[in-house]
Write a protein that binds this DNA or RNA. Structure first.
Lengths: 327, 327
DNA sequence: TTTAACTATGGGAACGATTCCATATATTGT
DNA sequence: ACAATATATGGAATCGTTCCCATAGTTAAA
């Protein structure tokens, strides 16, 4: 069943059927005839032929660092809810935290109109990324990171961690920090700076040795905390760059006989499902991951529809959740 | 840059360039000429034109019930790792637990060669599903559920829960169960039956009131546990159909002054990241979610390549993880 | 009444590949 | 030396749309 056959059966030209399917001038009479034939034959237009002709794929490339992560999967859920309401489908590419893979996928997605737009859930953005993004001829939104010169939706990590730190410093004088690489601007640098600025505000000097670098795994965080206790045993407050890091820290503290929050306060970031379930429940930041995914999707659709190239920049608010891991 | 231009520049016909790109007879001389032109011009063949002509999209439709779930996102990670190694891209469709959406997506994916194959991560499979699947003209693998008559990769939920139950009944005589709807064969029915059969084996009668139905949310599980304590206060062992349910139960037990595992033992299923972090760490089942995703992807690729329609059925093993929530 | 604008329709050229068929030469077996 | 086979190449049809252009009738504005 193709458009030519439908046209013949309805006694019109191919062009008229095409106009009927899209939005051109078609008289009521022909309109009815075509509708009947389509109904009877069960004709469905070939998407591929349409794509070849129009160059619009209705596909969105989504590049993510890791699918099985609470924050990323929530963002994807947000993207999915918006794109599926429109007529877009998502092409998912998982880089498994290999940044060079991001560039590869960028290329794959861009090559010869494979996708109409791209969402890049960023972690570490290098100059090489910047170059690749600059050359892009299709709309792109960076999600989860601020990236100058590009449209992006991100979370206010700096103020979030600054606020949570300020709050717990009412009850602590020996703060420490366990974070991730500073190459990750959002989760690494902004959160770290937020922590340091809050400490500075209270005139607290934080020694270098009290600032640990880990990654997002519970196990690495455990080890980082172990090192911390070794070099800075007087610590009474640990600000962590993520919930998973906080979980590792809490486990470690417990095994070293420090009680939380009596001896040491701990905070996380992310409000993961389990942050309220563990003992003690975790004081943390709720980031609106799903909502930011939805915002990013809407922005991208806007950019694709209107071909508008104005750079926009959405910084999402957050909520401070005070629970039992802090005093 | 299209194939015709390349052909002209290389002094050959379009057909020869096509043969060069694919796998036909091309002399070394022309081969070199074409290679040079392609390098100089940066020519990239249009995927869409190829798809239109060949009918192969190199796209896989992946239908999932919920992306931000530990088990699902791990399965997707497995799928992604295999498909990305081959030349396939994944089209992700999230149904948000609305089963009728699954049928919709099945239709969307199938219509006019949109995808070459489908992975359906199943929860509840109705007769309507069966009908829709029977009419499919492209390969499909069901992941996470056994489904008679179709190729599938699933986890041995029955034996897993039966074994974990048998084990903890060495130290408990008043078992209870918190599960999910029986319409979900894998997570609902199989796990429940595994539990009941293990109890029967030890000649333990489990009253109806000691078998609660919840869903996968921590909050619903909390409430189910609350009801359980109300109607069956003598309970000393709770087998839960998932880790998240177990987390809800543990939280509830703690708030009602029952200590785990001394007063009540609790088990989960899933080995989620946090099962070893909470207090007490959770006795649970490790299912090879990521591996099953990889297996399903390989099966699908096999079915697509060889057009082989033999139904296969992979049941994955599991590991019993004894931790501190049981005695 | 002329001009312009809108409505309606069909013909045919794209879009950019693959692939069948015909043809020609080179190689091998007998 | 001849048939059979493998290698190499180009011409042209095909996949199924969209959309530009030409044509024409109808209505509205001047």
């Amino acid at each position: 069943m193709d458009i030519t056959t439908v046209a013949k059966l309805a006694g019109v030209s191919r062009a008229t059927v095409s106009r009927y399917l899209n939005d051109g001038y078609v008289s009521d009479e022909k309109r009815r005839a075509i509708a009947r034939v389509i109904k009877e034959t069960g004709y469905i237009p070939s998407r591929q032929a349409k794509i070849l002709r129009t160059g619009k794929t209705n596909l969105i490339g989504v590049i993510i660092p890791k699918i099985n992560s609470a924050s990323v999967s929530r963002m994807v859920a947000g993207l999915s809810s918006v794109f599926n309401e429109s007529q877009y489908q998502m092409l998912l590419a998982n880089t498994d935290n290999r940044e060079n893979k991001e560039i590869d996928y960028l290329r794959i997605f861009t090559e010869k109109d494979r996708v109409d737009g791209i969402i890049l859930v960023g972690t570490i953005l290098t100059p090489e990324h910047e170059r690749a993004l600059k050359n892009l001829r299709i709309p792109l939104i960076v999600l989860g990171q601020a990236f100058d010169g590009f449209s992006c939706v991100y979370h206010d990590d700096y103020h979030a961690v600054r606020e949570i730190t300020s709050h717990i410093l009412n009850r602590g004088t020996k703060p420490a920090y366990i974070g991730v690489t500073e190459l990750d601007i959002a989760a690494g640098q902004s959160r770290h700076t937020g922590f340091l600025d809050a400490c500075a505000e209270k005139n607290l000097e934080v020694p270098k040795k009290a600032q640990m670098e880990s990654d997002f795994s519970v196990d690495a965080a455990y080890l980082a905390c172990e090192r911390l206790l070794d070099v800075y045993p007087e610590v009474d407050t640990i600000v962590c760059a993520s919930d998973s890091i906080a979980f590792g820290a809490i486990t470690c503290l417990r095994e070293f006989g420090r009680s939380v929050p009596e001896d040491v306060q701990v905070t996380g970031v992310g409000d993961s499902d389990l942050s309220k379930v563990i003992t003690p429940s975790l004081t943390t930041i709720h980031h609106h991951y799903k909502t930011s995914g939805m915002e990013a999707a809407k922005m991208l659709i806007g950019a694709m529809d209107k071909e508008d190239t104005i750079v926009r920049d959405i910084r999402m608010g957050y909520e401070l959740l005070l629970r039992n891991s802090t005093r």
